[in-house]
């Protein structure tokens, strides 16, 4: 096996949280690793590396995607948002505020991915039914909360954003 052949570097230009950067990455580097190691957006939490848990969810051109299942080179020319883009300085986003209000997190490891998925839902669908919320949360594993306070948080977040 010639290991070197897997190491071809490519030039990638990507916009992360509004800031465009060009860099060289190995062809096999995952998007999650590039975001964590090159962009230092360490709020991208890697939970399973096989696309089940949803912890590493990011917004890829506005769509929730698993950063562990994408290669960094696939992000070339695309726009990515991570949890680091949500708060305005120390002012939490309404969704983050709602999660705090309703105790929608315990250890917080799965939370970043959930908040990004929820932000996409509430943008597309400001008054979601529980069924729509379940569909989004169904793509995320949380081992601490048992989901009840997450569900309550998402309902509150929708209300808060509507009142905004």
């Amino acid at each position: 096996m010639n290991v070197q052949s897997d190491l071809d570097s490519r030039q990638v230009t990507v916009t992360v949280n509004g800031k465009q950067e060009s860099l060289e990455v190995e062809g096999r580097t995952t998007l999650a690793d590039m975001l964590r190691q090159e962009f230092h957006t360490q709020g991208v939490r890697v939970g399973c590396e096989h696309g089940v848990c949803g912890s590493c969810t990011i917004l890829f051109d506005g769509e929730p995607m698993r950063a562990c299942l994408l290669l960094a080179v696939q992000a070339d020319g695309h726009e990515i948002k991570t949890i680091e883009s949500m708060a305005d300085g120390n002012k939490l986003h309404e969704i983050q505020e709602a999660f705090s209000e309703k105790h929608g997190l315990q250890c917080g490891f799965c939370t970043a991915g959930i908040i990004l998925s929820v932000s996409e839902l509430l943008e597309r669908c400001p008054e979601p039914t529980d069924e729509q919320i379940y569909e989004i949360l169904g793509g995320h594993l949380c081992r601490c909360t048992g989901y009840q306070q997450i569900l309550q948080s998402v309902r509150l977040a929708a209300d808060m954003l509507l009142e905004k």
Partner: peptide, 21 residues
């Protein structure tokens, strides 16, 4: 009282430093 948790802001913003960070 069910007060909000004081540790939430660092967790909600992804700023908590886990071992892999």
């Amino acid at each position: 009282q069910s007060v909000k948790r004081v540790e939430d802001p660092v967790l909600l913003t992804g700023r908590a430093r886990h071992i892999d960070d």
